[in-house]
């Protein structure tokens, strides 16, 4: 079972209280972007075997979006962090790298 801690309300709950929102930190491609970039923005998603950064929403709780770093193989959750960030905070990056040496390059 996947347990997540919402960084907004602090509740730790199992995944049925949350709604998954797919890959995190996509860069939006808007007007003026190339067709290839726009297509990739809409459809191309990483499907890693290992560390994955994802969006989740505390749908049955406080309703807020947040990010989670977890392992798609073991379901280990390295940590969660607020949605208004462009990437994991430094402590979390260090925690992931400690558990998966080499991440993000080849650490999967």
């Amino acid at each position: 079972m996947l347990m997540l801690t919402c960084p907004h309300c602090g509740v730790t709950a199992e995944e049925t209280e949350f709604a998954p929102g797919g890959q995190a930190h996509l860069k939006r491609q808007g007007p003026g972007s190339s067709d290839d970039d726009f297509e990739a923005y809409l459809f191309a998603r990483a499907n890693p075997r290992g560390v994955h950064l994802e969006r989740w929403r505390h749908a049955f709780g406080c309703g807020k979006w947040f990010h989670a770093a977890r392992c798609t193989v073991t379901l280990e959750v390295f940590g969660t962090y607020p949605a208004r960030t462009a990437g994991p905070p430094a402590e979390l990056r260090a925690a992931i790298a400690a558990r998966r040496p080499g991440w993000p390059e080849g650490g999967r």
Binding site: V11, A13, E14, T16, E17, F60
Partner: peptide, 22 residues
């Protein structure tokens, strides 16, 4: 899906009851 043993007096827990928000 709430650990009621740790639900303190004066704490409100938003979660679900069956299929609906509560």
């Amino acid at each position: 899906p709430v650990d009621f043993a740790t639900l303190a007096e004066g704490e409100i827990r938003r979660s679900r009851a069956g299929q609906v928000a509560a």
